[in-house]
Write a protein that binds this DNA or RNA. Structure first.
Lengths: 145, 145
DNA sequence: CTACATGCAAATCATTTGCTTGGCA
DNA sequence: TGCCAAGCAAATGATTTGCATGTAG
């Protein structure tokens, strides 16, 4: 259990930090990557810890509202969740249309993009999300055959 | 019916251009904005033209595979579809977390972003999608009260 | 103690599929 | 006149909700 990290992330929340919620957060921290609700559910179930799938969803919603995690939908049906803190910095996702792989890439955007939108459109940006769909290295090779 | 535009968009496709498919494409052209499958279904139903919802979905899939339209999921559950041609240029979406409004903004990204990814990651980008979540002008005002 | 959280099962919503009938090439 | 497409109804899969019970503060 990443007790310290969990404490830090939940320092200012207005909900109870129960053992289920800690475990779910712990999985997100340990895996350190985008996960489906289903993934989290299965990982917990392989341990002693059985948490209901409904609880996983309710908890992820709660975490998202508090800004602890980010929720991402790629074009498929299900949502991915990932920790949102400075150490995990801003990154973007490449999604392979052929094999479905999701690859993370570092920040690519101009620094001033959020400010520009606030000035030009009066829109207050809280969260920014860049996704690119295409073909990963492997799938490009395989389609040559 | 935007016959000319429809002909142009379907010039090189390998499926039949039936009257239902024309009508669906026509709605997308006329409305000239992101629409839900449900929206298209309802618009057609108000006209003489009754097209089944399943047909709408099947057709949208087909159009997307052919590159005629783009499919976009914002964090909600349902997908939006919009015409994909040069005249509708690259644009991005601002999504208001409070009222749900979806606002289009013009291209903001550096020109070379796709090439950089191809060089640096070996990933071949076909489609790029930038979404920003936050609060629109109106909702900022209203929350001041 | 008591309000808030969990677990399970049932409900919901968008989307997909099976299958029969219709219609374009 | 053979295939692909449409329409409807039923199936699916992710997510949500109702409700009785458990538990953190």
């Amino acid at each position: 259990m990443h007790e310290k990290m969990i404490k830090k992330l939940t320092a200012n929340v207005d909900f109870r930090v129960t053992k289920q919620r800690k475990k779910i957060l712990d999985v997100l921290i340990s895996q350190d990557q985008h996960l489906l609700a289903q993934n989290i559910y299965e990982i917990l179930r392989e341990e002693d810890s059985k948490v209901g799938l409904a609880t996983v969803y309710r908890t992820l919603d709660l975490f998202e509202e508090s800004g602890i995690i980010k929720k991402r939908k790629f074009n498929g049906d299900s949502a991915y969740y990932e920790i949102n803190d400075e150490h995990h910095g801003n990154h973007h996702h490449l999604i392979c249309k052929s094999c479905g792989a999701v690859i993370e890439v570092d920040e690519l955007l101009p620094e001033d993009i959020e400010e520009r939108l606030e000035e030009e459109e009066g829109f207050q940006v809280e969260d920014l999300c860049l996704q690119m769909y295409g073909y990963c290295e492997n799938c490009q090779k395989n389609s040559d055959e």
